[in-house]
Design a protein around this nucleic acid. Structure first.
Lengths: 170, 170
DNA sequence: ATCCATGCAAATGTTTTGCATCTAG
DNA sequence: CTAGATGCAAAACATTTGCATGGAT
């Protein structure tokens, strides 16, 4: 569901190089697990939570621990390669930040699907709001919760949908 | 820091009436603690986390438990009187929704201050995005993280600020 | 009287941390 | 070699839940 449909080999190399510099600059070490985790995220098209990521990585390196996954994700977030967000749930989700492109989310309250979108005019508007408050923006999180097209269509019984929406509203 | 600077007595009565109807409609009971909690939130100007709320309420009713605070907040959110949000932290914050007015947040990464803002054009833009995806929006969460004016001013040493920003960026 | 509300403590689920051991530089 | 990385299990934290008791209707 990524907006950038094609993630090239160069992208991966560039990201890895950035992480490597980041680590070296702080006297941290370049390890196989750090490489493994970043490579996995780079080929992943969607966001993922820490536990699923841990499970997936165990298939490739049975010994990797939850602690290492969390510690590495934290480094990647600090490095700016990964974005951490919460979709109104009790756990965080992680996803690769491609270049400096940013996208926001429409989250279906019914099927939990996440639709990504990007609108330059929205970004501009945000900048103008920040200027007004003399606020220096670093990053943002914009999530719209509602009902997606498919879930609405599935609900052929319009009365049920109306009920559902009024239940959700209050 | 609320946009609505004046919360009238009528507002409070209206909110309480709404909660009362909500409870009665579901066969739930109108209790002193539920009233206490809502009244406390209504007079509060800022958002608050569950634990601080619990501490504050204990001053008024020593017996109130954490569980009751969470259970009541949950009811208020369902009722539409309270909004629950997470400012990139590990715990949720709660605040009264005044009428159907909505506001978004600028969050200072330095002093943790939260500035509220409302822009009709931004809301309109969101609606048009939803239309494009045939998505029915119910509510949204929009947070911009950065450095507030005061923290920037405090940092009279511009070199430090530059360092800080580049550190935050990656 | 009935059924819901509440306090309490235990359980849950996620994320963090201390420590002994292992490994990259 | 030496500082940092890792696995493991325990700890920390916010939040939820089960159950016996208390309270609203």
């Amino acid at each position: 569901m990524s907006l950038k449909t094609k993630i090239t080999q160069e992208d991966r190399q560039q990201s890895w190089a950035k992480f490597e510099s980041f680590l070296k600059a702080r006297g941290l070490k370049v390890t196989g697990q750090r490489r493994l985790l970043l490579q996995f995220l780079l080929q992943l098209k969607h966001h993922i939570d820490a536990d699923s990521l841990h499970q997936s990585l165990k298939n490739k390196d049975a010994s990797i621990s939850r602690g290492t996954v969390y510690r590495t994700l934290d480094l990647l977030v600090q490095c700016g390669l990964v974005r951490k967000s919460t979709f109104g749930e009790d756990h965080a989700n992680y996803e690769i930040v491609h270049h400096d492109e940013h996208h926001d989310h429409l989250i279906c309250m019914e099927c939990k699907k996440v639709i990504e979108f990007y609108r330059a005019d929205l970004e501009k508007l945000q900048d103008s709001i920040c200027q007004h408050y003399k606020f220096i923006p670093m990053h943002h999180s914009h999530q719209i919760f509602g009902i997606c097209n498919q879930c609405r269509s599935k609900d052929s019984d319009q009365i049920n949908l109306t009920k559902k929406i009024s239940r959700l509203n209050a």
